[in-house]
Computed example of a mutant assay.
Amino acid sequence: MTQVTVKAGEFTVDADLVAAAFALDQAGMQAKMRAGEITSRCATGIGEDEGRFQLTFHYQTRALRLIVDGSGTVLSKAMEVNGRRRRAAAAPGG
């Protein structure tokens, strides 16, 4: 599986990607999602960002933000702590 797949307009993000961002193992991350401790949002780009999507995962004081295109290719990812960007990286090949 690629890191993000898109099917019928819905995004599926590889659990390992989210777990690693929050320094959790996959089982722990999935349990926290089921318990509502990790939440997610999807925003659709408009104007010059049309065709892009921001997928955001929140856990405690941290937020993982992924910018993806309509095919699920990760264009960028960033981690924010307390609303401040801590690291940002272009996706491989991007």
Rank of each mutant, 00 (worst) to 15 (best):
E48N: 11
H58P: 02
Q26V: 05
G47V: 11
T2R: 12
S40D: 05
D16R: 07
V18F: 02
Q54R: 15
A63S: 01
A21H: 00
L17I: 00
A63W: 02
V13N: 09
G36E: 07
M79I: 14
S76W: 00
A31G: 13
R87S: 12
G9E: 14
Q26K: 13
K77D: 04
A63F: 00
R65Y: 13
M33N: 01
G28E: 06
R86F: 07
A35I: 05
D14G: 00
E80Q: 13
G83K: 15
G51K: 06
R34P: 12
G9D: 11
V6G: 14
K7R: 12
V18C: 02
S76R: 13
A21L: 08
T2L: 07
P92K: 12
A8V: 06
I67P: 11
Q30C: 06
Y59A: 06
R41G: 04
R41M: 00
I67W: 10
D25V: 09
A88H: 13
G94V: 07
G47E: 09
A89N: 03
T73K: 15
S71P: 05
A27M: 00
A31V: 10
T5H: 07
L66A: 07
Q60L: 09
R62K: 08
K32F: 01
T61S: 09
T5R: 11
T12D: 08
I67Q: 13
P92R: 12
T56F: 03
A27P: 04
P92F: 09
A78T: 13
T12Q: 04
A21F: 03
A63L: 00
T5M: 11
G94M: 04
G47M: 12
A31R: 10
M33I: 11
T44S: 04
G51M: 02
D49Q: 05
F53R: 11
F22P: 02
A20Y: 07
D14K: 08
A78M: 15
D16F: 04
E37N: 04
V68H: 03
G72V: 10
Q54L: 14
T5E: 14
L64T: 00
S71V: 12
R84E: 13
I38W: 05
D69S: 09
R62A: 10
S71R: 10
K32V: 05
T39Y: 00
A78D: 11
G36H: 05
A23Y: 04
A23H: 14
Q60H: 07
F22Y: 08
V4M: 13
E80W: 11
G9Q: 11
M1F: 13
R87D: 12
F57C: 13
D14L: 01
R86W: 06
K32L: 06
A21V: 02
S76D: 11
A15H: 01
A23M: 03
L64M: 10
F11V: 01
R41N: 06
Y59L: 03
N82V: 04
A90S: 09
T12S: 05
M29G: 06
R85M: 15
E50D: 07
D49H: 03
